[in-house]
Design a protein around this nucleic acid. Structure first.
Lengths: 215, 215
DNA sequence: GTCTATAGCAGGATAGAC
DNA sequence: GTCTATCCTGCTATAGAC
């Protein structure tokens, strides 16, 4: 064994370090050399444990990203179960809290959404995991939860657009922390995250807080 | 001169090709070789015209991205001037149309937002251009347009969160075309873009189209 | 302003010792 | 399972001919 390895195996440290670096810098900007150095192991370790760099990247999604997505989902369901009744407000609040405050640390959340965004703008094989095993089921579940409360005239596409819009806000406020911080003039501290969740719930339920005569 | 150059100068072709490739694949995934080959010129051309690869990337933003942002802004102002009166509805409709239908071709729009997203997740020097010369002024302008119509109790942060939320939807529906298409089950054709703009306006003004007794 | 040729280095991947 | 040593490809950047 070598330098700064905790109790974890080399394989696990590689996955952990690779996730961080891939999220921060992107697949092409990260070399196998940087990963193995940061993981405190040998250059050949990636090829021994994963075959090649691409498979390491895919396993980051299969073994770590998916697990995070499941933790978020479980948190959403707990939040919802903790509500007195099911309503659009409780669904959206549960969702926003799971995604913005949720079970992940701030770092984990940032990496999670950075990886997701990278797959959306430039899909690889990992995109299938993100889309089919996470996004689609989530949106479908949300659709079924919300449908009973929406106007009968709202068709399936419109329902999906509503869900995608809520999702787009949550996604944006998670991955665009830097511009958001610079624009609002302060960091993502806990009180702000509370206000943010409240804003997303309010905006999703009622849109702009306009005066009565202003529409 | 060489192979497939139109009437444009080598310098212009380099900027054009580089923009496309950087948007599609990201800075690190694109080599100077690929750029010069695609532009039909010699490997040394990038260094001759721009000094190095990084400066070429920055000039894509300075000379092409900024110009696009200005065209979008001009379109927004035209749209707004064409409305009978200023109201939250007319402001949001003008904005959504400028950004989703707007003056850019579908390709241009995709590249424009891909470049923007890449700068948001991993900022370089170009981020300053995007933030200070485009995002900040736009959000400030929108704030001034909308403020008179919002409840007096809404503070500055809340106003910004509302504007950022509208922006997040427009951004998402522009750069996440692939997952959105796969989820709604069809492509971004013109009728869909019309429905999309309408949805964004409706959602931004009123939130979810819920039954009266459902909140 | 555009080309060829090449320096100089970093990349992914593998073979084989331990 | 982890190491060293090495192959070979591809990268950015430059020098210098035209």
């Amino acid at each position: 064994m070598s330098s700064d390895n905790g109790s974890k195996t080399t394989r696990d440290r590689l996955l952990e370090v690779a996730e961080t670096l891939f999220a921060q810098k992107g697949y092409d900007a990260v070399s196998v050399r940087k990963i193995t150095t940061a993981a405190g192991c040998n250059l050949a370790a990636v090829n021994y444990h994963f075959g090649n760099k691409k498979t390491l990247y895919l396993n980051v999604f299969r073994e770590r990203w998916m697990h995070r997505a499941q933790r978020i989902r479980a948190c959403f369901e707990e939040n919802l179960a903790g509500c007195d009744n099911t309503s659009p407000a409780s669904v959206i609040q549960s969702l926003a809290e799971a995604l913005i405050k949720g079970p992940l640390t701030d770092e984990e959340r940032l990496f999670h959404f950075q990886l997701m965004i990278r797959e959306i703008i430039k899909p690889t094989e990992a995109f299938e995991i993100v889309l089919e095993e996470t996004m689609k089921p989530s949106f479908e579940g949300l659709g079924q939860l919300l449908q009973p409360y929406l106007h009968e005239s709202i068709d399936e596409e419109r329902t999906l657009l509503n869900i995608l819009s809520i999702f787009s806000m949550v996604l944006y406020f998670n991955f665009a922390r830097l511009p958001v911080s610079k624009i609002i003039g302060h960091a993502y501290d806990q009180p702000f995250k509370d206000r943010l969740v409240q804003h997303i719930v309010d905006f999703s339920l009622s849109g702009l807080p306009a005066k009565e005569n202003a529409r």
